[in-house]
Design a protein around this nucleic acid. Structure first.
Lengths: 237, 237
DNA sequence: CGTACCGTTGAGCAGGCTCAACCGCTGTGG
DNA sequence: CCACAGCGGTTGAGCCTGCTCAACGGTACG
């Protein structure tokens, strides 16, 4: 390494790799301009982690955002059954640490030795809030969507069909403002099957089972009603 | 409905619903300020879709971004085996249509009658590009991540373990700039299992099978090499 | 009122999970 | 230097549940 400059050379500055919105690049490429790199570099510090080290734990206060410079990390959650759901392997140019409710949602560990750029979330937000802030709201929204997608990945790794359907119902319930026990399902069973990664028949049987077990009652095909909330929550947990 | 104003009343303006970064709200709430709503309203037009109508098709040119005002839609892809993977059910306050490479990645259909705010992508980008544009790159990145998560959902609904492992290997291969047939796997088999939603044993057996079938050779535990590219691509498709 | 498609139910099959034993590597302490 | 403990990985046996194929019933829409 020939780092003989006071300011880090180009290769030492943060990279963000992604496919862009516009026409042109389909590959995962660097999307920051040199100027943007400098701006990020100004507010970030480099930090190294040894292999196997926990970079942060889920639910801890989210004070920093990280960008991977080199090495590989994993973002994961420990599930109640003792297994571990890995959401992503993080490598050079990946961001992690964008939080929800001021806390990290995943844990992150170093799979190999990892070097990151660490950015105080407050300073990053200061940069973002420069103008109308509209864009920030879209960023928030996409981050939210990403978390939803991760939650859905958990659902998809659940094996029991009736548990998947219960999680699906709870998702719909949460989406409404009023969390009544009455849930509207405007979509078809096939749509649900496609969403849950099940066959249509499996959804049918799962619905029948929830009904038979007295956990959820179905008033027609598009309305569900939670009967046994404790068992429902346990299934959907 | 009492729409007697020239300018749409508050309830008629775009909403974005999400959980925010900061401390406070854990629920899915409106995140736009009144001013931001007005700004969006200025560049958007309302458009209604009848139930069952296709709002856009995957791979078609992405000229608009949509925000759901009311109703329910689904974002999906038709898979090669004839089934349909549903990535999300879209309801009030959801955004869709942020593209990759100038084209939509999913198809979207109206599950119920749907009303959307439709925003020309060019005008939205003009608003976003107001200042440094740094924030936009984060938006791009998170959108990219979301697509990755969706791709992973497809993997998770693949039943055959060796197909999942093949898709995983191809993902790692694509991540490297040089798409050589030699693939580094720094993570443990258990990490892979957690990522693919499989047991550790299933990963072992899948690896053994790929090896036995002459599709992939494993040089130690952390290096794979594609031997039969056609069959590999077919598996990972 | 008719015709699709959605939904339900049944029978049989297959692939992944669990439990369990064993191998091999690594790091540690006697 | 060697013995051992611990963990990751592999392999085997048996069970479980979701998929496939198939037939039938119901609903919604023209």
């Amino acid at each position: 390494m020939e780092t003989k400059h006071d300011r880090p050379p180009r290769a030492m500055r943060p990279m963000l790799r992604a496919a862009s919105f516009g026409r042109g690049d389909k590959a995962r490429v660097q999307i920051l301009t040199s100027k943007q790199q400098t701006e990020l570099g100004r507010i970030s510090t480099e930090i190294a982690f040894r292999r196997g080290v926990t970079i942060y734990e889920a639910d801890s206060p989210a004070d920093w955002v990280f960008i991977v410079k080199e090495g590989v990390g994993k973002a994961f959650q420990d599930l109640s059954n003792g297994s571990q759901r890995v959401f992503a392997f993080l490598s050079a140019g990946d961001v992690f640490g964008l939080a929800q409710d001021g806390r990290y949602v995943n844990s992150v560990k170093a799979v190999t030795p990892v070097v990151c750029f660490r950015i105080p979330i407050g300073e990053l937000m200061d940069v973002f809030l420069g103008d109308s802030g509209l864009e920030l709201q879209f960023l928030v929204k996409m981050t939210h969507e990403l978390r939803e997608a991760q939650r859905q990945q958990i659902i998809l790794t659940r094996h029991q069909a009736h548990a998947r359907v219960a999680m699906f119902l709870r998702m719909l319930q949460r989406r409404d403002v009023n969390e009544s026990s009455r849930i509207e399902l405007p979509m078809t069973r096939q749509d649900i099957a496609g969403y849950l990664g099940l066959s249509g028949e499996a959804v049918s049987r799962a619905v029948a089972r929830l009904s038979r077990d007295g956990i959820v009652a179905f008033r027609g095909r598009h309305v569900a009603e939670i009967l046994d909330r404790p068992r429902f929550e346990q299934l959907a947990a």
